[in-house]
């Protein structure tokens, strides 16, 4: 969207010119709004994190609880993102390459997690696996822990990030159709060969784009994991939960130092995302979420 607009910059059309006052109002209003609501909060994270200088900043980041939160965040994302990636490819293959009944229903079911509040997403797994939950009793008898432990964090994260890869791939694979794959098949390629040599090269950038967004959300999710984590320091805390704990202890510098890691992740995500949109605009799905 953003990628091709510059190339297609139209010659000046006089009828489309807004009055000078309107141009200024739109420019100042738009930029001012973004500065106030987007740039200022980002700047505040940096300033608050460095309030006591770089020494305090790095020593706060070296805190054992923060280190273990980093580990936890990476572990959860390392499990949830690949699984949702496999799901996304399978769903997009099925929906994009075949005609079958109930496709529209399946499409809307995949979107469901986007419209469920994060808190409710986490709560679902509490209802299933918590002590009072459906499987709570059975799990306790077998000494298995799901909520207030890593599996619960992973499940909640998987729920919240489930649509990202699928949503990116489905419109693209629907648009590409099955012609190329059918041709490869007719020429004697087996199913896996068709996927690796025909389908995957066609969707690789969209796949990366989806994984990027999925990962950003997986690492930054707060509401859902907050409900299932039990807030056990050094054990079930991810980075966003660590920010919460430090902030509530009025340990502002440490809270913002931890937050700055997540803000950095968000900025890197945006840069890579913008690069993909600019470089591979034609190979990404037309729809943005």
């Amino acid at each position: 969207m953003a990628g091709d607009s510059a190339a297609a910059a139209p010659p000046e059309r006089l009828a489309l010119r807004d009055p000078r006052w309107a141009r200024w109002a739109i420019f100042v209003g738009g930029i001012g709004f973004l500065a106030l609501f987007v740039v200022l909060p980002l700047a505040a994270v940096a300033v608050e994190a460095l309030r006591k200088g770089f020494g305090a900043y790095f020593s706060d980041l070296g805190d054992p609880d923060t280190i273990s939160a980093i580990h936890m965040t990476l572990t959860v994302a390392a499990i949830a993102v690949p699984l949702n990636c496999v799901f996304g490819v399978a769903a997009a293959w099925t929906i994009g390459k075949f005609a079958f009944r109930g496709k529209t229903l399946l499409l809307s079911l995949i979107d469901v997690p986007f419209s469920v509040s994060p808190v409710i997403s986490g709560m679902l797994f509490l209802l299933l696996f918590g002590l009072q939950g459906w499987f709570g009793h059975w799990l306790r008898e077998h000494h298995w822990k799901i909520v207030f432990a890593l599996p619960g964090l992973v499940l909640a994260t998987m729920f919240v990030t489930l649509p990202f890869v699928a949503r990116e791939l489905i419109p693209l694979m629907q648009e590409q159709g099955a012609d190329e794959e059918e041709a490869a098949r007719m020429l004697g390629a087996g199913g896996l060969r068709v996927f690796w040599s025909v389908t995957l090269p066609n969707i690789k950038w969209a796949l990366l784009y989806g994984v990027l967004l999925c990962n950003a959300r997986a690492m930054g999710e707060f509401g859902a994991v907050s409900v299932v984590s039990g807030h056990i320091r050094g054990l079930t805390n991810t980075l966003p939960l660590q920010v919460d704990i430090l902030y509530n202890e009025y340990n502002m510098v440490a809270a913002f130092a931890t937050a700055s890691l997540l803000a950095g992740l968000a900025l890197v995500t945006l840069v890579v995302k913008s690069f993909l949109e600019w470089r591979y605009a034609d190979q990404l799905a037309l729809t943005r979420r």
Binding site: A6, L16, R23, V38, L42, G220, A259, T269, L270, W278
Partner: peptide
């Protein structure tokens, strides 16, 4: 869409920041 100005691409990218920034970070900030 309608105006051309320096840094337009950055502004365009910044619009998505609320999607990318974890909500807890936005909250404390």
């Amino acid at each position: 869409v309608r105006y051309r100005f320096w840094g337009r691409r950055i502004v365009d990218a910044l619009v998505d920041l609320p999607f990318a920034l974890p909500t807890a970070v936005a909250g404390v900030s």
